[in-house]
Nucleic acid binder design. Structure first.
Lengths: 165, 165
DNA sequence: TATTGTTATACTCTATAACTATA
DNA sequence: TATAGTTATAGAGTATAACAATA
């Protein structure tokens, strides 16, 4: 706990009603769930607001990264990995195909299923454009100290585990 | 670093192309930016998927919590705190007013602005319904050990600081 | 002329329900 | 009959552009 104890804890929010003449002052201590929810919602907004020249959306990049990192899989597997419903993934895959970043081939043994995989253009895109898209976040991370990045690294792993349930 | 070093680091992703007969195996180590982005995008999806009986959306709850925690403020200030554009906040405030959870009064010195504040019904709602909405996340957090919650607590503070820039 | 806020409009993201094809 | 995937539809979330009111 030594490392964590050294750091400033989350500041208790003192609620002052600026325009309230009564001068009353209440004190809340937002729960961890509340603070984590707000942090995630806000960072998600910021990430989605980052635009590059390409018309590839964050959701598409996320799915493409998944295929890139884990290899070919069926639409259903991809939907499960990304935590979305199959109909949502259908549209994402269609968009990636239109961009030429993913392709589909028949499943060798099951005619209902398909195998989706990244194309060479898709690989090039992940290496180049995704980095561009993450420049904003990279800059923010660069401003932190090494120990804060360690905390975020561990948090990313914990959050991913929670979200995967 | 002792505390962090004790913990398992994020697992290096070994990329195996399951359906690739070449048997080649590439190794990527996703950047911190990539891992944090994916974690945040996925947890955000999970949080938005949590529904309660009420028709109040996560965005509305987020803004209402902000007013509850920080007191009355103008629409512009609220938009800035939440990290959205003013037109987006206009709609959120209108929805909160329709629910009777927020009210608007004229700014004392500037006729262009207004002061938005939480109503008593809004306070009651934050205390009751927001908790209900967060039950899913609370359960996930309860499954973690104390040290992991400390990491997330610190991460929430760091992320909020980054997103606020 | 600059600032604050709203209205109009459009696009992304995602879900559920209903359907088709295959197992 | 069960499973995988797609199509249809709808609602949440958000932005930009154009406008109105006030400073």
């Amino acid at each position: 706990m030594a490392l964590l104890a050294r750091q400033p804890q989350f500041e208790r929010q003192i609620v002052r009603y600026a325009n309230d003449v009564s001068g009353r002052e209440e004190e809340h201590e937002p729960s961890l769930a509340s603070r984590l929810r707000l942090a995630v919602v806000r960072l998600n907004r910021r990430l989605r607001a980052q635009r590059t020249d390409s018309s590839v959306t964050l959701t598409q990049i996320s799915a493409l990264s998944c295929l890139y990192n884990w290899g070919p899989m069926t639409p259903g597997e991809l939907a499960a990995k990304e935590g979305v419903q199959p109909p949502s993934m259908t549209r994402v895959i269609a968009a990636l195909e239109e961009h030429g970043f993913a392709s589909r081939r028949p499943h060798p043994t099951d005619g209902r299923q398909a195998i989706v995989e990244v194309t060479q253009a898709g690989r090039d895109f992940v290496r180049a454009e995704v980095c561009a898209r993450e420049r904003w976040l990279d800059r923010r991370l660069a401003d932190l100290d090494e120990e804060e990045r360690e905390v975020l690294s561990r948090a990313a792993e914990i959050i991913d585990r929670m979200a995967g349930q």
